[in-house]
Structure formats: C-alpha cells, structure tokens
C-alpha cells in the first residue's frame, strides 16, 4: 500500500502539514517495501488550481491512501472520483500517522 501524507518536512519525524493542496511536502510511504520518498510540493506557488493539480498528482502516483488535515473542494472532488481512501489527522509526525493508519486508529475523512 502506498500512503501519501502532507508534511512540513522531508523525513519521518516531520510534522503533518494540515493543508492538502498547499502542503510543503508530500511524504509517500510504501508499506510493501518500507520505503519513504519525499517530494517538495511542485504546485505550492501556483496561482490557482493547486487542489486539482495536487489531487491529480496523487492519482498519478498510484496512491492508495492519503493522510492530511483538510482537503479543498476541488481536490476532494478529484480524490473522491478515484478509489483513494482519505484520512483526517489533527497533528503528529509522519511516522506516528503511518502507525495510526496501520493500527486502524485514524478516522476516514
């Protein structure tokens, strides 16, 4: 399973970024191979369509689950149209939230 988390930094101890579209980083964790890939949000400074771009990026990356604080309306429409599962978190680090998801203690958005 590939999990995408919105993050404020580029490692497992970085905190969750509450915003989906305008998150600083995307932390993509592959639970099959226990590998973390972090990319800087390439759309962060775009003027518009950030939610759409970010959601499209998520779909194209073959993500199975997303963990973020809040999702904008356009991003949500795209993500809901895909089969990606969405989770909501309030705080914590990337590692903590991956663990919570795997333990089944994160709420679906």
């Amino acid at each position: 399973m590939k999990i995408l988390l919105t993050a404020l930094g580029d490692n497992l101890s970085a905190l969750i970024d509450e915003r989906f579209g305008r998150a600083e980083y995307f932390a993509i964790y592959d639970t099959d191979i226990n590998k973390l890939e972090v990319v800087k949000n390439p759309f962060l400074n775009d003027q518009g369509g950030v939610g759409v771009s970010t959601a499209k990026f998520t779909v194209e990356k073959g993500i199975d689950a997303v963990i973020s604080g809040s999702y904008g309306p356009n991003a949500l429409e795209v993500l809901r149209a895909s089969s990606i599962k969405l989770y909501k978190t309030e705080n914590g680090t990337i590692q903590e939230n991956i663990d919570k998801l795997l333990n089944g203690t994160l709420d679906e958005f």
Partner: peptide, 21 residues
C-alpha cells in the same frame, strides 16, 4: 494552463471539469 481539467485513465476512465478555473 489553468488546470481546469483532470483526466483519469484506466481503470477510472473519468474526465472532470472545474468551471471556476
């Protein structure tokens, strides 16, 4: 260039349009 369209290929097969963009 305004990101008003999103196309999702197989298996989803969806083309979405965002009029406000």
């Amino acid at each position: 260039v305004y990101k008003a369209l999103v196309v999702m290929g197989e298996p989803l097969k969806k083309t979405m349009f965002f009029d406000e963009l």
